[in-house]
């Protein structure tokens, strides 16, 4: 795991939509810093200038500022500008504008107490039927042996490989409690809620090995639900898929 992916600031960004999120975060923090420093300077100046000392009397009359209403309106407008121009477009694209099915890699990720089960459809592109009744330590996804579509499915634990520059559509669900599938470097985070199969999509722009984490408290093993997110070139991904395919 190369060290310079992570530091004290934002982690490296290898996601298609990541730069937009980082841009929003940076703009916000610059504005916040400006506001905070501006107000703090004013506060300190006021405290010094109007400190109690002999020969200095407080002034009863209060109305000598018209500026603040202007500042407040400005701040409000700036917030709504951010919301409309930045936040909403990113949010809608991440949550609604999915890539076309045929161009994307489809993967199922099923969280469980304390591991990520990854399920690829295999050659036929169809996910085999799964059922809670068959779920066990040998068959964590509960694949139905009798279903022909399940024959070629590929299942791994904590190992999510994706090809670079290819949109990936993940169907996220959970077997037991609420988990939260997050890949910090991809700026991806989505709660895995039992009883729901939640779609999310992303596209990796750089190859390498990164980490998956669980962001929602899911029990005493919550902290050790670490998964590996490996972005391969298209060829290497094909090879990996073949290697993992059931013989």
């Amino acid at each position: 795991m190369d060290k310079n992916y992570y530091g004290w600031g934002l982690p490296v960004d290898i996601s298609a939509h990541g730069s937009q999120i980082d841009q929003l975060i940076i703009i916000l923090h610059l504005a916040m810093a400006a506001l905070f420093i501006g107000w703090s300077v004013f506060l300190v100046y006021t405290l010094i200038r109007f400190r109690a000392r002999s020969g200095h009397e407080a002034v009863h009359e209060t109305r000598h500022f018209k500026a603040p209403t202007f500042v407040e309106v400005l701040v409000a407008l700036f917030e709504f500008f951010l919301l409309a121009a930045f936040a909403t477009p990113i949010w809608l694209s991440v949550r609604q504008e999915f890539p076309p099915d045929d161009k994307a890699l489809h993967v199922r990720v099923v969280a469980q107490q304390f591991a990520w089960n990854i399920h690829y459809p295999g050659e036929d592109g169809i996910f085999g039927r799964t059922d809670p009744r068959w779920m066990g330590s040998a068959n964590p996804l509960g694949l139905d042996g009798s279903d022909p579509a399940a024959k070629d499915d590929i299942t791994t634990v904590n190992q999510l490989h994706v090809p670079v520059d290819t949109p990936v559509i993940v169907r996220l669900s959970s077997k037991d409690v609420i988990h939260s599938f997050t890949i910090p470097v991809m700026r991806v985070k989505q709660d895995a809620i039992p009883g729901e199969s939640i779609p999310l999509w992303f596209e990796a722009k750089k190859t390498g090995e990164f980490e998956i984490a669980c962001a929602q408290l899911c029990g005493i093993g919550h902290y050790r639900m670490r998964g590996f997110f490996t972005v391969d070139s298209k060829e290497k991904f094909g090879e990996w898929l073949k290697a993992e395919a059931p013989q």
Partner: peptide
């Protein structure tokens, strides 16, 4: 803002 919340939530 939901977009920046994706990275900062939890």
């Amino acid at each position: 803002l939901a977009a920046s919340d994706i990275h900062l939530h939890d």
